Amino acid sequence: MLLLDVDGVLNPLRRPSRDFQTHDCPVDGTLYRVHLNPKHGAELLLLAEEAGAELVWATTWEHAANEWIGPRIGLPELPVIEMPIIGGRLAGPAGEMFKTPHVAAYVAGRPFVWFDDLTGDADEDYLRRHPGVGDFLLVRVDPRHGLLPQDLALAREWLTAAGKGS
């Protein structure tokens, strides 16, 4: 599987290059301005096809990613890992991000690459210790630039090295 975050990955935090288009996306009464590169969709679809992997949203945008993000970069509707923030906590007891337990439950032993800008050592430790999580690669995307060719190359190398497509 290829797990995709939006903010910091597909929507960089720094002013993007001319390859990006700006969109205003009203979600649940809040207007979000996002910068998206339409080329990312084709690159992710190609990577998924080459590796025999499934693309999955792993973002706080949750189902809104299928409405506002996917169509603007050429992705079809994707499965969504729901990411509720439980008890207002953004980090778990060992410092793992609030998304990490949701990802661990969703993957159910399937190999995966997770493109996110907020994962760190605590997330990697959590996933390695969690029963039912198999092989994985965390691709820590620089949120200033968003998803870059080297991030995709790292995922491609890992996925194809041992035939780890889903």
Rank of each mutant, 00 (worst) to 15 (best):
T60V: 02
D142W: 10
D7P: 14
P71C: 09
G88K: 00
R140L: 03
E54A: 07
V34Y: 08
P38Q: 09
G29W: 09
V80S: 14
E96W: 06
P143H: 13
P79R: 10
E82K: 12
H40S: 10
P93S: 13
G92W: 05
R144A: 13
F98C: 08
R110T: 01
V107G: 01
A51V: 01
A122K: 02
T22M: 09
H130N: 14
H145W: 14
L137G: 12
P16F: 06
E54R: 02
D116P: 05
D135P: 09
R33E: 14
R15L: 14
H35K: 14
F115A: 00
L3G: 06
G109C: 04
S17V: 03
V9S: 02
H63W: 00
D135F: 00
E124H: 04
G134D: 12
Q21V: 10
D123I: 02
G132N: 12
L78E: 00
L10T: 01
L159F: 05
H63C: 05
W61A: 09
R33S: 14
P101L: 12
C25N: 12
D121A: 08
G52D: 07
G88M: 02
G88S: 01
V80D: 11
V80W: 11
L90F: 09
S17A: 04
H35T: 11
T59P: 04
D19A: 15
D125W: 02
L44M: 04
A58L: 08
C25S: 15
D123N: 03
F20Y: 14
Q21S: 05
G29Y: 11
V103N: 15
V113D: 04
H40I: 06
G95R: 07
Y126G: 07
V56A: 15
P26D: 09
F112Y: 03
D5I: 00
D123C: 03
L137D: 15
R18N: 07
W114F: 06
W68Y: 10
H40M: 11
K99A: 07
V9N: 01
A104R: 12
L4V: 03
L159R: 10
G74F: 07
M97H: 06
